[in-house]
Design a protein around this nucleic acid. Structure first.
Lengths: 233, 233
DNA sequence: CACACTTGAATTAGTCGTACGTAATGGGTT
DNA sequence: AACCCATTACGTACGACTAATTCAAGTGTG
């Protein structure tokens, strides 16, 4: 996806990361660097680098004479894109999807409101372009093309907000939207109401109507939440 | 603060991290592992581990034949608590503080609303206790004691929301609140109106009134934003 | 002559193995 | 119960080698 297999330590992480985030090692479990190195058939140096990365994500803690202990879920850096990807690929995917969607429903309306105030002319143009792309692909099982424009739309909103914390959630939203299309039940064409809402948000942002942009985006996220409730009540 | 100097590579990070996030190395700058190792008087192994951590934070990118290149700010993992701390300690502290406060104003009202629905009896008790603690220390220049209860209050709200993404912002909010008291202008006692709002939020959560909890918390965050505008218009 | 392509040398990170340092643990002794 | 010491696994250092990428010189071609 992003940077796969950028070295041996990356390969180790691609296996260990998902395993830990999936809860295969319960909190408090101890792993030994040497054993792991043997298991993955890499040198201790490489394994140590991998452990350092896991440590920086607060997934594990390395202590002398003890080993590498898995930290409780509540301490993980759940905003790390890598961790998010690992968890979305694992078993608690539904739970993770819900958490992220709730986050979206808090952040995106606020971002849309700010976007209405700060969006450049270029961003407004991008936005309407995305919205039109969504409309054009909203019928006839062109889910892939629709998704591309949907993701781009939300990215632009978050970026146009002018707040870097919001902007950096673009990747997260992209993962959620992509996940919904690829893994969840989405045989049919997208909800026409949702498509209309996106068009209206683009209009509101262009018009500089923050309150309207915020409210319309809130409706979009409410729809996303309801969708989850239908799939996993 | 959290885990200072947990090894040599930690010491290196404590210096390199702040330097990079402060923009001392413009995007695209190239650092050489060997040179860095010499500069910090550590072995290449240690330096490599440090680089791996910086890489996992998307602060730098390591490529063969090139070196360790600093990535543009837009690609940093700005939600990493470590990165947040480094940036709050650096030069763009005001900018960072504003970004985080805007984030708070989006997240905390939503979290308070959910808390009103999901808070346990114990969490409600903690909340009122924190609110009372704030009241008790709101006069007489007892800023330190006030801060402790203020932080605890917001932590409980975020945790009681039942959403792990919200909950993990507790540390961020704590940094922001602590920063406001310690670095920004806050000679006088806290705004009585804000104290009252906290008490009312606690009541609303206890009463299970989500809309009221959300609205009151929104007022708190609006106050925080206005405070920033006064300090840095 | 200008341009594109090939080749090879230089450079820097990547990997490995070993040796030794060091702190935390657990058991044994006083 | 307090203390001491051996064990253990991580921490650090060093050196040698590998491999990938860049850059430039050289070559061929239009």
């Amino acid at each position: 996806m992003s940077t796969p297999g950028r070295g041996l330590h990356g390969h180790v992480l691609d296996t260990l990361g998902p395993a830990i985030t999936a809860g295969e090692y319960p909190p408090g479990s101890v792993l030994r660097t040497d054993e792991l190195a043997q298991h993955f058939e890499v040198s201790r140096s490489v394994m140590r680098e991998a452990v350092r990365v896991l440590e920086s994500m607060h997934l594990v803690e390395s202590r002398r004479r003890v080993g590498v202990t898995v930290r409780p879920k509540a301490e993980w850096n759940v905003y790390d894109p890598q961790v998010i990807r690992w968890r979305l690929a694992g078993t608690d995917r539904p739970h993770q999807l819900r958490s992220l969607t709730v986050l979206r429903s808090a952040v995106e309306p606020a971002a849309a409101g700010l976007a209405a105030q700060h969006a450049t002319a270029e961003q407004c143009a991008e936005l309407t372009e995305c919205a039109l792309g969504m409309v054009a692909n909203s019928r006839g099982h062109k889910l892939q093309e629709y998704l591309v424009h949907d993701i781009a739309f939300h990215r632009v909103i978050l970026a146009a907000s002018g707040n870097e914390m919001f902007a950096r959630l673009g990747d997260v939203v992209a993962e959620v939207l992509a996940g919904r299309t690829h893994h969840e039940v989405m045989f049919e064409d997208p909800d026409p109401a949702a498509v209309t809402l996106h068009v209206q948000v683009a209009e509101a942002v262009r018009a500089g109507d923050a309150a309207r942009a915020r409210e319309l985006t809130r409706e979009i996220t409410v729809g996303a939440l309801q969708e989850l409730d239908i799939l996993a009540p």
